[in-house]
Structures are given as structure tokens and as C-alpha cells.
Amino acid sequence: MSFRARHLLAIEHLKPDEITTLLDLADRYATDNRNGIAHKDVLAGMTQINMFFENSTRTQASFELAGQRLGADVMNMAMQTSSVKKGETLIDTALTLNAMHPDLLVVRHPSSGAVDLLAQKVNCAVLNAGDGAHEHPTQALLDALTIRRAKGRLHRLSVAICGDIAHSRVARSNIMLLGKMENRVRLIGPPTLMPSQIDQFGVEVFGDMKEGLKDVDVVMMLRLQKERMDGGFIPSEREYFHRFGLDAEKLSHAKPDAIVMHPGPMNRGVEIDGTIADDINRSVIQTQVEMGVAVRMAAMDLLARNLRLSRQTAKETYA
């Protein structure tokens, strides 16, 4: 098996064959999920703790469901209302949790790098469920699986990522993953929402949707945060939708069979027209949600195998 990682912190650290291994397993889980085939034995006896320092409904639910389908004991820590508010540092929280001997720790945090920091202090496997504007690896993996299932392959595709790239961890993880798997990545958005020197990441940058979407296979829309809509980064919501919102006219410049993706939650009428989001011939947004559970099952399965292996080795070494 070619997946040796101890944690899943960033796509940046993964090799193409590790990504393929993970997606292959996720693909099987996706099929089994559809057919109602249970795998309650995979994580039986293991404890999964979800720590979300930032609000999330769908990602947390997806991780929770993935853990339960594999038979893990799943606990959700409501970090918004916990001791963190009382001034406890991230490291102390990590040490406290570590003392409870969890096997899998799923963490989302508003600061870039915070999940890396936490992973250094615990003995279990850590899954990054999004850290600041850094990475969101399981989102990129579920996007990859969705693309692979829709297009039959995950290489030599032209993928456009549109919108607020600067603040998006989803964009960063996807740029990494799609690049590693040898696809052409295009970024489309206003220059105020582009990270500096992003052109050095092996991507093409466009300021115009029609030009950027020309002949692409995949259109990936990003969510625009409400607090960035008024005046700060873009002039207004309506000007943004006019120039960068995905509607039928703009989509017509992509390939006729191009698929439309969105990590959710959507702002209909801001970054995406409602009719496109609901068009079952183009939109794979619901499939993304479905693949999310499968990808998270695969990731936790693989990390748990490595965790058992390292514990076994430790036992033999000290026996």
C-alpha cells in the first residue's frame, strides 16, 4: 500500500500515488455507500474526536458520518463554547485531548498552520478539516474523486477555479492536487482576490470569465464570504455577480460537457446562478457532498491502518 502518512495535514505533502491510493479506496466506499454495504468493523474500537474551532455544519457532519459508517466512536467537541474561550492555548487543549487517547483527531481552525502545530503535540492521527487560508485537503480529494467519476480520468483536464482565491484554503488544496495529477489549472477572479505571485504556482491567471472558461472541462466556483462583499475587496455584490458570477452565458464558453462544482454553502445569485446550480446535467454539487463522506472514510481508514502498524512496531520494539 502506498500511503504512508501519519497525518493528513496538507495536499502539499502527498505524492501522486498516495492520492491515487486514497481515491481508489474512496471510490469503493462510495459504491458501497450507495448499495448499503456497511463497514462497521474498519474503525471498530477506535475513537474519533472532531474539534471544530470554526463553525461548520457540512464538513463536521460529513466527518461524523464517515466515522460512524466505519464503526468508530465519534465525539464532537464544541470548541466555540469550550475552555478555549476561557483562554486555554491550542497546545494545552491538544495535550488535554491527547491524554484521553483518541485515535483520530479531526481539526478545523481559523489560523493557517494551527493544525500542523497541534499535530506535533499528539500521538494520534490528525486530519486537517481546514486551517485558515492554508489547506483543506479532504475537500480537494472529494473534488478530485467527483471529477474522476464524472470525467473518467484525473489527468490532462482543464480546470477553472473561480472567485475568492486569496482567502480560500479550498483553492490552495485544489491547485496543489490538480497540479500534482498533471492537469491545467486556471484561476479566474478580480485581482484583489488573487494571492500575490500566484502565477508562480504553475497556473494561468485570468481576470475575465469568458476568456478563462474557454474550453475548460471543469468549472469550480468558490464561495465569496459575506464580509468581503462590500467595498473592501470588490465594489458590490451585484457588480461581482455581473463580472464573475457563473450564469448560462458565461458557462457556454466552457466545453459543452463541462461540469460545475461548488464546495458549498452556495450564495445563489452572488457567485452562481441558481438554475445552473440545480441543472442536473451540469452541476455535480450534490455528488461532491456524497463523495465527501467516501473520501473521509478512505482517509480515516488509511490513517488508522498506519496508526495500528506504528503501534504494533512500537510494541514489538519495546517487548
Binding site: 502539499e12 498552520g113 485558515g132 492554508h134 489547506e135 490552495r172 500575490s196 505571485q197 504556482f201
Partner: peptide
């Protein structure tokens, strides 16, 4: 400092 590294790490940069 703003640039490729800042963008890669998702950290706010200054020009």
C-alpha cells in the same frame, strides 16, 4: 512578507 511563500502558507502578507 507577501509573495509566493505567503500565498503557499495562506498567511497574510505585507508588500
Amino acid at each position: 512578507t507577501s509573495g509566493k511563500f505567503a500565498s503557499l502558507r495562506g498567511l497574510p502578507g505585507v508588500s
